[in-house]
């Protein structure tokens, strides 16, 4: 079980969190003028990397805040966490 550092509450057990999929998926500004292909890409296409992955988590049983996590999908190492709206920090490889 992961130990996830909530940027607001500090490290807590994974059972307190909900997973929110890949981070930084931008919703098209003008859905009406977005092509079907681009819309489908926004809706359905997600990365599934072996290694570093930026993803969203929510501290569901805590402060209910969404935030971003950079996690290595092989080692489960959490490289960094950062708040919504913040740019992803540069992380050493």
């Amino acid at each position: 079980m992961l130990r996830i550092p909530c940027p607001y509450c500090g490290p807590r057990d994974e059972t307190e969190f909900a997973y929110g999929g890949e981070a930084h998926i931008a919703r098209p500004q003008n859905p009406a003028t977005t092509t079907d292909a681009d819309w489908a890409d926004f809706l359905f296409m997600r990365k599934n990397p072996k290694g570093r992955h930026r993803e969203r988590w929510m501290h569901a049983r805590g402060c209910r805040q969404w935030f971003n996590v950079e996690r290595d999908t092989v080692t489960h190492q959490i490289v960094t966490v950062y708040r919504m709206g913040e740019p992803p920090p540069e992380t050493p490889r």
């Binding site: 909900a18 929110g20 969203r56 929510m58 569901a60 209910r64 805040q65 969404w66 919504m84």
Partner: peptide
Amino acid sequence: GWLEEWVQT
């Protein structure tokens, strides 16, 4: 959670 997600993210 759905409302919070949209408002926060």
